[in-house]
Design a protein around this nucleic acid. Structure first.
Lengths: 246, 246
DNA sequence: TTATAGTATTAGGTGAGCCTAACTTAGAGT
DNA sequence: ACTCTAAGTTAGGCTCACCTAATACTATAA
């Protein structure tokens, strides 16, 4: 498989993937909005990515006026770019102590230009991590990402506790806000209440409780493996305590 | 001063600087050869860089059919890019253990895309180094580079000893060869002989002696501060030895 | 069923950065 | 001084990745 796609083409494929993951349906409009370019330009590029020039298969499927879907080939390219980007993010954040929001822009800029070898060295240096610093999964070199254990915080029932594995990284201000609440990957969170109207969750993190808009909660992922009722959690804690005393 | 130059334009300015340093006279042809593009394309780009669009001054001076010279403004841009590139080279070589030759290509690719802030963090992490791993000087953030202490190995007289500060990095094979001889920055080298014809130096590095073509010797820099006769060096060594014995 | 709003597409245009081919100029050799 | 070659320039063309403006399609509401 020849790596002959331009930086721009790769960027489009990556965006298709992200919009797909986020909304489930990829429209020209949505791509245009996210990339901050005009729908006409997106239309043209998608047409190019949808045609099978070199008889190796297209990168996307596109039914005009309907939606866009990645082919396996296109998905692989998108995953590769995403891997570059997230490894870079983590590398810049850990090795050079850059702020999370700055890291995002820098990594996005650089991602299309780093070689496979550099990517491998970064991955090796970081210990082949599975997630970046805000919990976004890093695809494997084969372009595969395992998300089976992830579920949105919004799906947690009242009284349940779980470990946060991912926070949304698109909006720097939101990222900062969540960090001030202590809502970062690795934190344990308990859902204390849920309003019947207005879609607000009250969550506890350690000592403090905070109200959280449903839309925000849908962007936060927790580990399905870690789910348990707060009661169970309490009992577990006591067991540990007893063990400590004996 | 607005940073509005494209990656390509910066690359041109950098190449003008390097060709100027190497040959003293910058022709369209030389630029075309080094950048591996056609003279016609260079001609067009130089014309653009020579005109003073935004009333802030041009980047180069160009007298048609004569030569190209950087203005102070152009030089600053070139130095900035060179700083990016060499900091990146050193960073990749030290932090990620990439081979010298691979580092060169990677850094050249990436240099135009890293932000000033990332550059600063890399510089800080490396301890604001003055030279990269093969001794090329890293310009300061203000675009200044001090080379007063550098002179070519070829200028050394027979019997003189000096410390190597820079080896040429353009040809990976040459770089590898010099490394196998132990001819790397920091090494001490003595000129043992010079052929009257054929322009060959015989140099000693530790135990071994090697013949070195004049053209190669001209590409290697030594520190003018470290110059001394081999005799003086020998005496110095004995003094140290005596000191050790007492 | 038809009007209409919103979304998608097509047509045509721009600048960047390269190309080839044809022409001009400078400078060295006879 | 004249010619010839090498170097430089100009003209015109290409692709990429964007744009605007006009047109076509879809879906929903009257």
């Amino acid at each position: 498989m020849q790596e002959c796609l331009s930086a721009s083409e790769q960027e489009y494929l990556k965006t298709v993937l992200l919009v797909q993951q986020k909304t489930g349906h990829v429209t020209i409009q949505a791509l245009a909005a996210r990339m901050e370019i005009k729908p006409a330009s997106v239309s043209a590029m998608i047409r190019r990515l949808a045609q099978d020039e070199d008889a190796q298969g297209a990168y996307v499927m596109h039914t005009p006026y309907q939606g866009v879907t990645l082919t396996r080939r296109g998905e692989k390219v998108a995953m590769e770019l995403l891997r570059h980007q997230r490894l870079l993010e983590l590398f810049l954040a850990t090795t050079l102590d850059m702020s999370w929001e700055q890291v995002h822009d820098e990594a996005e800029h650089l991602a299309p230009f780093i070689s496979e070898d550099l990517e491998e060295r970064i991955a090796a240096r970081l210990g082949h991590p599975a997630r970046d610093q805000h919990g976004d999964p890093i695809p494997s070199r084969e372009g595969i990402v395992d998300l089976t254990d992830d579920m949105p915080l919004s799906a947690l029932e009242v009284g349940m506790q779980a470990k946060v594995v991912r926070v949304p990284d698109e909006d720097p201000a939101l990222l900062r806000y969540l960090a001030t609440l202590g809502l970062i990957p690795g934190a344990w969170i308990t859902v204390e209440a849920r309003t019947p109207y207005g879609d607000i969750l009250t969550v506890r993190m350690g000592e403090a409780t905070h109200p959280l808009a449903g839309e925000v909660a849908r962007g936060v992922s927790i580990s399905a493996m870690s789910r348990r009722s707060a009661q169970a959690s309490l009992e577990e804690q006591e067991r540990k305590h007893e063990k400590f005393l004996t």
